[in-house]
Design a protein around this nucleic acid. Structure first.
Lengths: 147, 147
DNA sequence: CGGCGTTTATTCATATATGAATAATACAGT
DNA sequence: ACTGTATTATTCATATATGAATAAACGCCG
């Protein structure tokens, strides 16, 4: 009932099928993630970039960062602008290529990334519990087939 | 493997769990929807609003439309601006309340909505096929528990 | 060497979304 | 009837995303 009204609110169709359930569920989870991250002054986009930098272990060229975040370059330009304003990242020159700039995470950025990762984990755990009885592996397998 | 790399690209966590599968799957489906809708010069947001108007069967006040689209008013203001520019919708005065404006769908808007709905249905069908062997009802039930 | 195609990041225009601040109108209670 | 509160839509600032156009630097090929 709830679902049907929500699907209609979403507006793309009235019938409530798997497609809508999927998108609704994802939406709900994303909201929870953003909310949790907001508590540590992060967004999903920001955490994603910071996580890439932490995992890389060294400054990453902006184009490379775009590739790893699966988005276009102009997006990263802006995101790094905001991260720099937040003091979480610095742009450093690339000695070998004067066209290239690298994003270097700051100590504060590292801290923030850790805090964000923790928040994400909490949501993940909550989600696991909510899914309770469901066979996670089976669900994952089903979802993986949609790519 | 593929999934793990993608999750890492998304960057919020390295472990590939149900949460990521869910968001990935939803993302993939959304992309397909947007792509299909682009073929009839629509976006998901535009189709959602048009669908509300068709279903309402009469001009809808912008605030009401915002509620039905589950978004904030300022968003609808802009969306209706674009829909009006596309000649899919007209703003009409409300006789009873001079503060209120209503969105009235145009004949072209109706056509476009129908075309969009058809595209969505095609994606839905494709998705159903892709899910093939999976028990759709069970999957839906699982996803519905995440709200 | 020098010119030309490629690659880098940035800027700009646009779409979508949110939330705060604003202006106009409505309405309730005195 | 007046005053103050609420509601309407809009504007503005911001965040996220895309894609086209641009400028700077790289590198290869002749």
């Amino acid at each position: 009932m709830n679902k049907r009204r929500a699907a209609r609110r979403r507006g793309l169709a009235a019938s409530d099928d798997v497609m809508w359930s999927l998108m609704q569920a994802a939406h709900a989870v994303e909201s929870q993630l953003e909310e949790a991250l907001a508590q540590v002054e992060l967004s999903g986009a920001k955490l994603a970039a910071l996580t890439q930098l932490v995992e890389a272990g060294e400054p990453v060229a902006l184009g490379e960062l775009a590739a790893r975040c699966a988005c276009v370059r102009s997006n990263i330009t802006q995101l790094v602008d905001r991260l720099e304003a937040d003091k979480l990242v610095r742009r450093v020159d690339d000695a070998a290529d004067r066209r290239s700039l690298r994003a270097a995470i700051t100590p504060l950025g590292r801290e923030r990334q850790a805090a964000g990762a923790k928040k994400v984990d909490e949501v993940r755990r909550k989600l696991g519990k909510a899914l309770g009885a469901i066979d996670h592996a089976a669900l994952k397998r089903a979802l993986s087939d949609l790519d």
